[in-house]
């Protein structure tokens, strides 16, 4: 399995007596979208944080293969290297865009920050790129100098996506990216994510409690419960023919709703 972009083996993490991760394995291929689904408390957000190096597991290994094909133990990386990775090859989309955006900095400055952090030093080029990215996420370039607090919730989330993708990351972690948005706004955002990710060939680990989101975006799916992966496979296969009773329950509750 030498081509894996990201692979996790034997992840364990406990909070007191509770196992948030209890022997989780996961793999991600370049350009693929992997959805991690489960209800709150299933450990899916913890898994996202451990995969992205934001929290350390009690046991287990997460390996990331860089552009040169060299594998790195994510949790053994020196902090500067990991932070550099988060600024360049990786991206993180938060459920609440306010956690990622700088609310006192203009939309253009928000999109440009990662470029500047990577060393971009030509204002005109940065500005062009910001305009281009605002267009790609369907925000009018005329809003480039506006402050994020003047944006709607859906626009804020699209701005966060523009900010994250501006440096063309290879791997993006998404934590409930459509959570807290109206249904119509959600649909537009999902459509946008699907188009952009496909066009740019970005690999995504997507955490969601919403089976419908997983069905729309994901190539593969992992179903988590009580810190364990109870079922995994191709999205259509898992959702159309769920084997595990818990998955069956999840799928049927969506159908009922």
């Amino acid at each position: 399995m030498s081509e894996h972009l990201l692979s996790a083996t034997g992840l364990h993490l406990s909070f007191g007596a509770i196992w948030a991760l209890d022997g989780v394995d996961a793999t991600l291929w370049p350009g693929e979208i992997l959805a991690v689904v489960g209800e709150s408390g299933s450990g899916k957000t913890t898994l996202l944080h451990v995969l992205s190096g934001r929290s350390a597991p009690d046991a287990g290994l997460v390996a990331y293969r860089d552009t040169e094909g060299v594998a790195h133990n994510v949790h053994a990386m020196p902090a500067p290297q990991l932070r550099a990775l988060h600024r360049s090859d990786w991206g993180f989309v938060h459920q609440n865009p306010r956690d990622a955006l700088r609310m006192e900095v203009s939309a253009g400055g928000n999109v440009g920050e990662r470029l500047m952090a990577q060393g971009a030093r030509h204002y005109g080029v940065i500005r062009e790129s910001a305009i281009d990215w605002l267009r790609q996420v369907e925000i009018s370039p005329s809003r480039i100098d506006d402050m994020p607090h003047t944006f709607s919730g859906g626009m804020l989330q699209r701005l966060q996506i523009a900010r994250t993708l501006a440096t063309h990351p290879r791997l993006v972690f998404m934590d409930e990216p459509t959570g807290g948005l109206d249904v119509s706004v959600q649909a537009r955002l999902l459509d946008l994510i699907r188009t952009l990710v496909a066009r740019l060939g970005i690999a995504v680990v997507l955490v969601t409690h919403d089976i419908a989101v997983a069905r729309l975006l994901a190539d593969r799916i992992l179903v988590m419960r009580h810190g364990r992966v109870v079922e995994g496979g191709l999205t259509d296969q898992v959702l159309d023919d769920p084997q595990h009773p818990y998955t069956q329950l999840l799928v049927s509750s969506v159908l009922q709703a």
Partner: peptide
């Protein structure tokens, strides 16, 4: 400073020029 992460300072300069 330890990680030489000074992108934020450039964001401030960017904002100045934009404004």
């Amino acid at each position: 400073h330890a990680l030489a992460e000074y992108g934020l300072m450039h964001v401030k300069l960017y904002e100045d020029i934009a404004r």
